[in-house]
Design a protein around this nucleic acid. Sequence first.
DNA 1: TACAAAAACTAATAAGCGTTAGTTTTGTAA
DNA 2: TTACAAAACTAACGCTTATTAGTTTTTGTA
Lengths: 196, 196
Amino acid sequence: MAKIKPGKNTSKKDVIITKASSLFRMKGFNAASMRELAEAVGVEAPSLYNHIGSKSELLQAICFKVANDFTSQLIATEEQNCSAVNKIEMIIRFHISMMLDEFDTVFVANHEWKHLQEPFLSNFLNQRRHYEKRLVAILEEGIRKKELRSINPYVAVLTLLSAVRGLEFWQRHKKNISTAVLQDDMVTHLLNGIVK
Amino acid sequence: MAKIKPGKNTSKKDVIITKASSLFRMKGFNAASMRELAEAVGVEAPSLYNHIGSKSELLQAICFKVANDFTSQLIATEEQNCSAVNKIEMIIRFHISMMLDEFDTVFVANHEWKHLQEPFLSNFLNQRRHYEKRLVAILEEGIRKKELRSINPYVAVLTLLSAVRGLEFWQRHKKNISTAVLQDDMVTHLLNGIVK
DNA sequence: TACAAAAACTAATAAGCGTTAGTTTTGTAA
DNA sequence: TTACAAAACTAACGCTTATTAGTTTTTGTA
């Protein structure tokens, strides 16, 4: 018997993907072995293949789950009837909460996408590029409407996304500051830097 | 004969480390093989061991070179007789220029330190933690002297460092914007966000 | 020109990898 | 209780890895 039973709405495949996210984050995709993953799941390595197709498939599942989550949220934000500044704040807050709530998967998508195989690698990069372009468009709108300083929107998007990504280092300081303060301080820092 | 000769002041070991930086950045430490590295250098794999001790040693050389560069510059900055805001700007600009001029090595130090072996792993993390604490101290000084808003200095340091780190994605846009504009825009964005 | 050291080479090793094949155990429903 | 399918197991394959051993070639110097 497996030591870890999947719950009612959680297939064993989901359990494997969750454990893989944690393992890939901690050791990196290449350094994490299927034998280690199997031990974390509570089975022998070959048994994993009753539920998944390959190691690569696990990375694909993780990366595209994250990519789709971000894209969906962006669409929802674009449809909102509010100022560009408000939209940017919503997006920043969403990124922050994803970094905190879906840490393992977001981390893996951010760091290990490199090891995706074609055509998944190209797909993933295209999706990310497309996402960034839509963020730039929102910033350009804000600049046009004089809500924002006339900075280079590419640089600003790069700065925003990278700053939020940096929450991967947050684990260490979690105890000292509440996540509410964290969110507000980051939004303040990043928005004040560009708002007129 | 080796295809690539070391120059006057460049030992073959230096050539190997440079090629390793590039390879580790592109493929990751684990995915990059010594055979690939040897090919890049222009020899057979075992010949590398006439110049280096191990693959791990290469990663150590790269990571600690970068760590020491940053620490040296921080010391020089701390000794300057100027405001906290000025110091922060100097540090931001140094980080940006390192990201642009020493791209491969900084990238590897940022992404692949995980694969350092003990005691090097602990050393590296301690050095980084120490570095961050000294940045926090500079920010605290700025807040105390009312140069800066009263934000949480840990959050601000995290935001600054992460934003600058994000320049690893810069390669793509290099053609569109000059590095001077880039530097100024980023400094503006990040400093305006915290300066009173 | 001869000698010594440096650095290249070929061949091989042990270990670990993802994965497959074939078999046995387990859980479910008739 | 029997039968079937899902999922576990053991054993093993072919491949790649970093690295070592032993040998030959190249290089610099006396």
